[in-house]
Design a protein around this nucleic acid. Structure first.
Lengths: 217, 217
DNA sequence: TCATCTTTGTAACATTTGTTACATAGTAAT
DNA sequence: ATTACTATGTAACAAATGTTACAAAGATGA
């Protein structure tokens, strides 16, 4: 038991030292549950009640929204140091999630139970700031999605998507299929293949089987 | 001075009685500034620092986003009892607004200065709930916008838009031009006229000069 | 009334995106 | 090596949306 807390404390110091005040780190270590997820695991699903929110220690989590049919659209990613701000609201409201959170790769995180979270809002300034910041970041990303959808054509959106993937995956070679991209854009594989081809012809990427090499950064 | 506070208190009791606890209402009355805006006035503009956030007593405020060119897209509306949750974040961060808030009709509101707002987060539970609720509602609307943009065609989006306008304007006769609608959708007038025509042919609306009659609710 | 402005209608055409259908190339399993 | 499967390429066509250009109807002001 002591060992568990010490381990969490170490993790928190590694990844959240600048974010949370000391007493809060201790509280998180005491109340948090260490959890891991494998690639493709679903952390939070649409329509399911949220009982814990994750603090991500490392790995990449994809947040998406679907329309209850087979459609799905990528909203944004969460990384080390992030939390799922939106599940926080769900917690407060005991309401169902509007999102799906899927592990893009192996994830380590600390799960925090709902009830404690509101207490901390009162007790810890760094916690308030953390939550508000999360909102700020997520809202900006949502706005950015809206802007992309409303103002840009697929070609430009696709290129930004690839550049973004490069950033998150820390590699210019993306191991991804056209079909997977099509799912993120709620369109068909043929459409994506076509646009990828023109991006290649413009020298922005190089195509390979199951692999896209992006020529930047 | 006493009179001003009494007036605000009365307004708050009228519109926020169920929302805020008594001592908070008193504080708001003490610190708030009563303000009115005329149709087309801009309450908050993109890129401008936010120093106050509005509590809306009555009237309709339109929240939109542009892409720094002439493009603009409607995000959602605020009504009586709403606040601009997002300007709240801007306050905390002393950052610039990502939104434009425009009066759609005559507005009455109470403006609250930034600095007080964080204090209240600690002191008043109803304030915390109010802020979190605002976020919740706005996020849902943003998500809804994304869903619309990603999954639906213009015809369906336009019809929902009209139905929504009916709800907010409390009338089935909308005094609006095709060009104005086109602006909200970031598209051209011709496109909107075309779709309105087919909606009329399907008996869903009736078109008139500067007026659209919506056949529902 | 005349001139002007605003709003709407409509045609013709361009571009973007979606769909269907099939071919081909690489991969994996036997 | 053969078979089956997965991923990609491509053509041909359909549908949705965007653009340009012009006509006509109603509103406004002199």
């Amino acid at each position: 038991m002591k060992k568990r807390i010490a381990f969490l404390k170490e993790q928190l110091h590694l990844h959240f030292d600048a974010v949370f005040e000391k007493p809060l780190i201790n509280e998180i270590a005491k109340n948090g549950i260490y959890a891991t997820y494998e690639k493709k695991d679903i952390l939070i699903d649409i329509g399911v009640e949220t009982t814990h929110i994750p603090l991500i220690i490392n790995g990449l989590v994809k947040i998406s929204r679907d329309d209850s049919h087979d459609h799905e659209i990528l909203l944004y990613y969460l990384e080390e140091g992030d939390t799922c701000a939106i599940s926080f609201i769900n917690c407060i409201h005991r309401s169902k999630s509007m999102f799906r959170a899927t592990a893009e790769e192996k994830i380590e995180c600390i799960m925090l139970p709902v009830n404690i979270i509101e207490e901390w809002m009162v007790k810890y300034k760094t916690w308030r700031v953390f939550i508000i910041d999360s909102y700020h970041n997520r809202l900006e990303e949502m706005l950015s999605v809206i802007k992309e959808l409303a103002f840009f054509k697929l070609e430009s959106r696709l290129y930004k998507y690839l550049a973004n993937q490069v950033k998150f995956k820390h590699s210019n070679d993306l191991l991804i299929t056209h079909q997977e991209i099509a799912n993120d854009f709620n369109t068909s594989r043929v459409v994506i293949s076509r646009i990828l081809k023109t991006l290649e012809q413009n020298g922005k990427i190089k195509l390979d089987r199951r692999k896209i090499h992006v020529e930047i950064s």
